[in-house]
Each structure stands twice: as C-alpha cells, then as structure tokens.
Design a protein around this nucleic acid. Structure first.
Length: 1003
RNA sequence: GCCCGGGUGGCGGAAUUGGUAGACGCAGCAGACUCAAAAUCUGCCGUUCGCAAGGAUGUGCUGGUUCGAUUCCAGUCCCGGGCACCA
C-alpha cells in the first residue's frame, strides 16, 4: 500500500462534504474562536500560488483550535463588486454579473482543491442583493446619524433636530461648516431645504462637493494610480480635476477613537504605526493674520489668512506664507501685477496629481501673490506665496513657513531668494533647517531666551488673549470618499427631491442594481447609471442617486454577516453577534493597512454606538501575510540586426533576415557575452552552421552583419528549476518551431532532434519578480495539487518561510516536503505488508522524540511560526525513522499533531489506526480528536554538552552536569586540554558561566 | 518625498530573552541498490589557507556598546509594500 494522495484526498474531501464536517453551529457549549481571512476579490485570472498563503495559515490555525476544543468559525466569501469586472465588461461586452459569477465558481473549485475547512453554508458575496441590501441599510443608518462630540458617540439625527429646536447649535459645533452658528429661533425659521443642508453638515454619511480625476478622452473618472504624470495611464490622455457631488463618511469624527482603539487590539506595532500616521493627529494652533493687499480692486471686507501650525513657538521666524493653490483666498488677494504669474502657476498645478505634488522635492515650484501678511507681534510684512506642496485638504490649506526650522521651507526660501531669519542661534548652521524643539529662542521678541518646547504654550496663550489664535488638534486623515462614478457597485438608496436627499424606506431595500449593456459615463461625468432615465426616475417622484458605493463598502462589515448569513430580518442577529463577537484571528496583507482596516474599524464603532453590536473593535488579533513572488525565467535570443542602410542596399535583405531561424543560447554563453569574453557574432556564425537560412544571411551580409541579444521571459511551465524543456517550448508556439538552441555544454539542437535524447541542458536566467501573467511566472495551485497533492502543497507553502514575509515561489523545492509525507506514511504503512504498527511499549528515546515534537509544534503553531513547525515534523520523522519506530503509542498522537497541516493523510491514517485497533478511538474523525498532551517528564536531561569559548570563540565542547555550579565548572573547564593550550600557562582573566547555555574563558 | 517592512551559503530559510551562525529543505558532489531508470538509502557540502591536525574569515555596508552581537545603538546603501477611486 503506497501513499496514493490523489485517491486519499478525493475520498476525504468528499466524505467531509457529505458529512457536513465543517458546518459550524451558533449554539455550542464549547468556547468560540473566530478565524477570518481577508475577503478575496474574485479576479478573472483565478488564484495563483501566492494567494492561498494566508488561507492555509488560517486553515491550519482553525483546525488546530478545533483540536484544542473550540467551536471555530472559519468562513469564506467574495468581495465581488469592483472595478476590474467593469473594465473587463468594457473590453469584452460581458456583463460583470456573468463574469463575476464565473470567477467565483472557479475560486470555489480552487479553494476546495486545497482542502480548506470553510463552512460554505455561510458564504457571502457583496454583489448579491441579499447581501447588499444590508450594506445599503447600514449606509442609511450612517446617513441618519451624527457624531456627538460630548458623548463621543454616534447618535440619531432626530435627536439632533430636537437639540436644534431647543438651543440651536451653540453646543454642537458643526463639523461640515465651522462658521455655521444659529439659534433655536433661527432653526425654526429655516425652510426645509436649509434645514436639510445644515443636517448634511452633521451626518456621518453625507454628500458634498469633491474633486475627481476626470479624463475627457476616456469619458471616465480615473483612480490615482491610473494617472501618471498628469495623463491617463491608458492612452496618455489629459486628466483634469473636476468638482462633483460626492458621498463621504465622516471618519474624521472617529479619529480619536480609532487611535485609542489601537491600544486594545493585537496588531503589529508597524501596522499600528501606519494607522497612527494615517490618522496623523497633531496638536498646534490656528493663527489668523491680517493681510496687506496691493491692488486696485476694492474689497468688501478686510481679508485675513488663517494658518495651522504645530510650532507656534517659531512665529518670529516666519519669513513667508504658503497657500495651497486651490485656497479660496488666492483669487481675492492676488495683486494685479502678479495675476499673470499666479494664473500660469494654477494652470500647471491643475495637471499635477496629489502624489506628484507631495513627492517632488527636487523641483521647487511656487508663485508670489503680491499680498503680505502682518506678523501680529512685530508688525513685519510677510510675503504670501502659493505652492503645490501645500494641500488644500490639510489643516487650513495654508502654512506659515519657517525656513530655519523646516527643510521644505528652507529649500523654498533658498530657491526663491527669500531672506531667512534665524531664531535659534547656533542651532541653525545656514546650510539646512533644524527642526529641533530644544534650542533657545533668539530674535523672538517676548519669548526670547526661552526653550522652544516651552514657548509653544506661551505663544498660544498670548494669541488667545489677543483673540487671533487658538489651540487646535488637527488630523491629517480626511473624510472618506464614499462614491464612485461606476456601475459595478452598490446603488445608493437615496432619492433627490427638490435638491434634498431622501433615504429610501427600509422596506424598499434592496435597491437592486439595474441591468446595463454599456458602461460609459453619464452626461456630466457621472457613473453609467446616469444613462438610465427609467431607472433614475423614482416611482414616488424624484431622481435617484447615480453614483455607486466604493469597494470597501461591502468589506467593511462582512465579518458580521458570516455570523448569521441567511437572516433576512436583520443584518446580523444580536444573539449571534454576541456569541461570536470579535474576530479572534484575522489574516491578510499589509496592503489593507490603512484602507479597509480603518473603514471596517469605523463601521464597527458606529454600529456599536447605535446599539447593534456589543464590541467596537472588529479584529482582536491581526497577522499580516507576506506575498509570494514569482520566479521568472529568461531565455536569450540572438538575432541579426539590420541598420537602415542595409535594408535598401541589397534587395530582399530584409525578407531574408526575417526568415532567419531564431537562436537561443544557454545562460553561461549569455554571461560570457555580457562579460565581453565571447563575441556575439562569432556565436551567431557557430550556431548558424545548423541553419541553411542563416548561412545565406551570413553570406549576403558578410562583414556587415550585426547581432543583438534579447532577454525574454519564458513560461515557467516549460522550465524545471532553471533547466528549459526545449521540446515543450518548441511545440508551444510557431515562432519557436524552427529555433536553434545552443545548450550549456556546447551542443546545438535544431528542429527534429529529440531533446530528451541529447545529453545536455539549456539553462535559463532567473529573477524574482511580482507574480503576473505578463511575466509568464504564474504558477497555478491546481497544477501543484494535481502533481503533489493538497497536503504537500499546504505544507510546502508554510515551509517556504515565515507567513509575514515575502518570498519567491520555487516549484522545485516542493519535492522535499512531498518526500517527507511519504516518509511519514512509511512509518505506518509498508508498501507490501500494509499497516506495520506494533503495540509494543515505547522506549524513553522514542517518547522523547514525540514529546519534543509536540512541544515545538504546539508552540510554533500558537505563535504562527508554521515554517519551523514543518521543520520540526521533518526532524521528528527523521528521528523516528532512525529509531525504526512503528509503535502505536508514538504514532497515534503524531497523526493528530499533523492533522491541521495535512488533514487528508492524517484522516486516512487515523482511520487505519481505528480499523486496526481493538479499542475505540475517542473521535470518529481526526478533525475532532484531542490535541496530544505534552509531558515535560520525557524531556528532562541531567547533563549538557556545553560549548567552551575562548574570548567568545567556541574552541571545545564538554559534557557537564546541569547541577554544576560556577566553582565546579571553572575547575572542570580549566583542566581541559584545549583550554590549557589557549591559556598557555597564564591564568584566565575571567570565566563566564551561563547555566544551561555556555562557558566563556577570557584570557 | 513621507510612512512601514526586509537584506544570513548556489537557493528558501533556522538561531523564541545578547550565549555553539547556517537547523530543516532544495540544488550540487561522491557512493550503495538496479541490466537500466525511477524510488530509496549513506556520506560530503559558507569562503579561504592546510596532506592533516588546525587556523583565518564570515549574517548588506561603516562605526559603537559588551567577556560575547544575525540579535542592542548610531549612520549609510539596496530591495519590497502603502500614500486616500486597484482590491
């Protein structure tokens, strides 16, 4: 009986499916454990071997927890709305619903192939109306909600209305319009439209105007990464900023709680740092400056400029002001003299993406407005500039520039020859800015002589006294844009009547996405839905919102739906949500660090505030999986090269050259060409001896022949390690049919020669790159499972390295893991004799091997060190093999230990153990067996082989009792021959003894 | 540019708290079994000097702390991820 993984895996997958082995109940006396993978987007390319890395890790952990006695929720579903499906629809005309369904089916098959323990009865798809009904419903909750800064939680809009009716908004600062202040009487007098406009400034889900990247030529709005150097990535068409009505989520109101919440969750410090930096909380002051404007035009009111700064202590070092080019003041304050220059600059900025504006530091740009701000403390006139490095959305969209303390300001001042005031004495060296807070202030009026750090508060107090400034906490984070001008997303359950946005009633949900057959933008650049006049006209009058929701809408709450996926009364039953609670383990990539993770954390907080769930952080622990990169392979082609002259000189030359048989050379020849050791032309002559066509070309061109070397990606499926299988490549495409290959040891093979008969190799070049179709380095898990089995695939993915780290895929290495599983199998089963287990009592040595493995593997699994756990299995099996151990007492626990990693082989062996046993095993399936118990007593040692170092370098080893104390050890060590040799008669300076670790003799 | 992560043999990686650098596996080399191949098994395997014993050197680079540094500190180079409409 040999290890027939194909039969074994098929058999148990089917059995588990039929017996509902992975079905999870919401009622259990066992403790719960919730293991979740980040929501996959079902792309048309299917899964490649990089995708399942995290899924395997979470599957192992889920199975491990089940063995440890937990009721484990481990669901899977699909984030099936998204741009790629729509893009694909535009290219091929296939409806996104159709392609998405197809992709999901394929993902399903691929995932099942790997043997995951998902409870598929809980599968959710965000594009399914029964799911997005609730996404729309939650959106309406957020629409009907405002953030009460006093109670620090989301509350209902009607409650805000009654506050307004009683006291106006004096106690509830308006987050959407700071200057808005009204009394109860004002409120009562407002008309409906004004009231709704005001409420919109408070709602957590609100609409406002925002800028998008509009590409006229493509007729669509583009994502930032689709815009490169101000033009569209596809086609290079111009892209401009366009203001459009958009939906937003007021996530900024949650900024503080999102920060505080990080203290309660187990994410890596780096992940928390990324979120903290994104939120970007800073303390500082807003300062308002009076302006002097030199222009003819009369102004109705005297303009002032408000800046936000974290360093009010540097107020005397302000040498210029910088406004964001979009700042509303720019038009007002620009002097007639400077108008042309400012206009020219604004034109330039329009073409720049936000990222470019922030990233570009080498090239300094800006323009002077002609206006001056007045320093309130010394009356100095400060020139006001505009520059792209200041963004409108951050702070007040204006900064006070202190060149001696800020490097970007310094560079700007130098570039535009603005004189620099030094307020920090020796701390400023004149060559670069010094952002210190510890210098002593100089040239600083009333704060002269103070340490900067201490002056911050003093200046703010003074500003407040003067009524021109105030303390201010600022966040870099902005409200989240929540609408897309796209088709394939959730429609907004909103109808506009008379310019007012009205929500649909709950019983009108879901508002289903209508069918379309074209995906072009609406007349004003809105999404494709804007073209559907019938659909836009809502039954009760009014027009529908034509934007759709973004990708993160559905994924912000999906972890809740898994708890109660088929409920059509509520988004999740309260009892189910209380039972499952937080996700105990969440596995996914760092690319979601600030997007998805922050949004879903915010949604959870809002749902908590509104009383729907009892926890306000969704993910208790987060593990980030790295990426698996592709192992690209290259072949090297030599082709004759024609210069223009040659093409015309001899008629027919071009055609002749095009008929040349392509030549491919093995890697070492390419290396020699690159190193200049071989002449490329010589090589062409040499190989062309095998080709009549090429010989004719050589004759035709003679000395004028030029050759070039190309490096080409070759599909990795034709390569074993770095060896190319020439015949497979040759048969793959016509262009290779007549090719000649120069192999590593100098043989040349041409068409008709059977590569397998030739005792020589073609070696490919290798490089690690992102796994992608265009690089021909994609490896499909189905293929690997077919060749080696799911158990081998699972263990190999883990064996590659730490889950958190990125690493390249190497199909070659999988054989080691496959060999391990066969070796494991042979501990239990002999090819001829069948089961070879004995009931003999295990020896201490055997028990030691087993318990060392239990300890290591349990520890490693618990701390997600799956790669070292796989190594530990290998070590254990190697040792049991050496001991020729076939004892039930050792091998029965071992099979349970392996089950989370390789469930199929484990179940097969477990059932064989069961069938051959006189006693009944405790569980009917290895899935529900009890995790083996580690016992310390088998591992106790009485002595240790200590390494003996001389000055930190190991020179000898000595076996010394573990009870031995320092004096005794010193005595033993000094008697050692090698130690004596190094001491050379002199006494040691010191002997360091670390019990149980090492001994170091210092001489 | 800013934020985060990572650099250890030919390759993937190990070394859990500052204590024997290279576990485990791949590739390679030598051998056993075999008519042969596959499978399996045994041995070797960082670099360098040496017949050997043994020595020197070695965790991106430059310094520092320490009896002892892959591990801690400072600086620096290179690679990967994110930067708000890809998901």
């Amino acid at each position: 009986m040999e290890y027939n993984f194909r039969d074994i895996e098929k058999k148990w997958q089917q059995y588990w499916k039929e017996s509902n082995a992975y079905k999870v109940s919401n009622n259990s006396t066992k403790p719960k454990f919730y293991v979740l993978d980040m929501f996959p987007y079902p792309s048309g390319a299917g899964l490649h071997v990089g995708h399942p890395l995290g899924y395997i890790a979470s599957d192992i952990y889920a199975r491990f927890k089940r063995l440890k006695g937990f009721n484990v929720l481990h669901p899977m579903g699909f984030d099936s709305f998204g741009l790629p499906a729509e893009q694909y629809a535009m290219e091929t005309g296939q409806h996104p619903a159709v392609t998405t369904e197809k992709n999901i089916r394929r993902y399903h098959e691929q995932l099942d192939n790997i043997g995951f323990c998902y409870d598929w009865s809980r599968e959710v798809k965000t594009s399914d109306p029964s799911y997005y009904k609730w996404t729309q419903w939650i959106f309406l909750q957020l629409f009907d909600t405002w953030y009460n800064r006093h109670s620090q939680k989301a509350e209902r809009i009607p409650n805000l209305v009654s506050i307004f009716e009683q006291e106006g908004n004096a106690n509830h600062y308006c987050p959407g319009n700071e200057r808005l202040i009204f009394t109860a009487q004002d409120w009562i007098n407002y008309d409906e439209k004004s009231k709704e406009d005001i409420l919109m400034h408070y709602r957590i889900a609100y609409s406002a105007f925002g800028e998008v990247n509009w590409c006229e030529a493509l007729g669509t709005v583009l994502a930032n990464d689709e815009v490169v150097n101000g033009v569209s990535e596809r086609g290079g068409h111009p892209v401009v900023k366009k203001k459009m009505r958009q939906w937003y989520l007021r996530i900024t109101e949650y900024a503080d709680r999102l920060l505080q919440g990080l203290e309660q969750v187990d994410f890596s410090e780096s992940m928390k740092d990324m979120q903290r930096n994104w939120i970007g909380k800073s303390q500082g002051a807003e300062i308002t400056f009076h302006l002097t404007i030199k222009q003819q035009k009369e102004l109705t009111d005297e303009p002032t400029l408000t800046v936000y700064t974290t360093r009010p202590d540097t107020i005397f070092g302000v040498d210029f002001m910088v406004l964001a080019p979009e700042h509303e003041l720019v038009a007002k304050i620009t002097s007639d003299e400077q108008k042309a220059e400012i206009d020219k600059y604004l034109e330039y900025v329009k073409s720049r993406s936000e990222r470019e504006r922030l990233a570009e530091v080498k090239q300094i740009t800006g323009a002077f407005t002609g206006a001056y701000a007045i320093n309130p403390f010394n009356g100095r006139e400060i020139p006001v500039w505009i520059s792209e490095y200041v963004l409108a959305g951050y702070g007040t969209g204006a900064i006070m520039a202190v060149p001696c303390g800020d490097q970007r300001d310094y560079a700007f001042a130098k570039y535009f020859n603005i004189p620099i005031t030094n307020i920090i004495g020796d701390a400023y060296n004149g060559d670069e800015a010094n952002p210190t807070k510890d210098a002593i202030l100089q040239n600083s009026g009333f704060i002269d002589g103070m340490v900067m750090r201490n002056a911050i508060g003093v200046v703010i107090d003074e500003l407040e006294k003067m009524g021109i400034g105030k303390r201010k906490v600022n966040y870099k984070m902005r409200d989240a844009g929540f609408s897309r001008q796209r088709y394939w997303g959730e429609p907004f359950p909103i109808v506009y009547k008379g310019g007012i946005a009205f929500p649909l009633n709950e019983n009108q949900l879901p508002l289903e996405l209508p069918y379309v057959d074209t995906y072009s933008a609406g007349p004003e650049g809105e999404g494709p839905l804007a073209n559907l006049a019938d659909w836009i006209a809502a039954p009760g009058g009014g027009t529908r919102e034509t934007n759709t929701m973004p990708g993160y809408a559905g994924s912000s709450w999906y972890f809740l739906r898994y708890m109660d996926p088929n409920n059509d009364k509520v988004f999740v039953d309260r009892k189910a949500a209380d039972y499952w609670g937080q996700v105990d383990l969440y596995i996914g990539g760092t690319e979601h660090a600030v997007g998805h993770l922050l949004y879903s954390r915010m949604w959870t907080k809002a749902l908590y505030d509104l009383g729907f769930i009892c926890f306000d952080e969704p993910y208790k622990k987060l593990v980030n999986q790295g990426m698996i990169q592709g192992a690209s392979r290259f072949i090297y082609r030599i082709t004759p090269n024609l210069s223009g002259e040659q093409q015309f000189e001899t008629p027919g030359t071009t055609n002749k050259v095009l008929e040349a048989h392509p030549l491919y050379i093995s890697k070492s020849y390419r290396d020699k060409i690159v190193a200049g050791e071989i002449n490329i032309k010589d090589l062409f002559y040499k190989i062309s001896a095998f080709s009549k066509n090429n010989l004719e070309i050589i004759e035709l061109l003679g000395e004028r022949l030029e050759c070039k070397l190309n490096e080409l990606h070759v599909d990795v499926s034709f390569v074993d390690g770095v060896e190319l299988h020439v015949d497979s490549l040759r048969n793959s495409r016509p262009e290779y049919e007549n090719a000649l290959f120069l192999l590593e040891d100098g043989k040349v093979i041409s068409q008709g020669v059977d590569f397998d008969e030739v005792n020589d190799k073609y070696i490919c070049g290798a490089e690690t790159e992102k796994m992608s179709k265009s690089k021909y380095n994609v490896v499909n898990p189905d293929e690997i499972v077919e060749r080696f089995g799911a158990d081998t695939f699972r263990m190999y993915e883990m064996f590659l390295g730490p889950v958190e780290q990125s690493k390249p895929w190497d199909t070659k290495g999988i054989e080691g893991v496959h060999r391990f599983l066969r070796k494991f199998w042979r501990l239990y089963v002999d090819e001829l004799k069948g089961l070879i287990l004995t009931n003999d009592a295990a020896t201490p040595a055997e028990l030691k091997v087993l318990h060392r493995a239990i300890k290591k593997i349990e520890d490693d699994t618990e701390r997600f060190s799956f790669n070292t756990a796989v190594s530990a299995f290998m070590v254990c099996v190697n040792e049991l093999n050496d001991l020729k151990c076939h004892k039930r007492e050792v091998l029965e626990p071992l099979v349970i230990l392996l089950a989370p990693y390789a469930p199929h082989i484990s179940e097969e062996l477990y059932q064989l153990l069961q069938a051959s046993s006189t006693e009944k095993l405790e569980a009917s399936s290895v899935l529900d067996a009890a995790f083996p118990k580690y016992e310390e007593k088998y591992l106790v040692e009485s002595s240790k082989e200590y390494p003996i170092s001389i000055n930190g370098k190991v020179r000898a080893n000595m076996n010394i009792s573990l009870d031995a104390m320092q004096p005794e050890v010193e005595q033993i060590v000094l008697q050692n021959e090698i130690v004596q040799k190094w001491l050379d008669g002199k006494p040691p300076k010191k002997i360091i003894f670390v019990k149980g670790k090492m001994i170091n003799v210092v001489i």
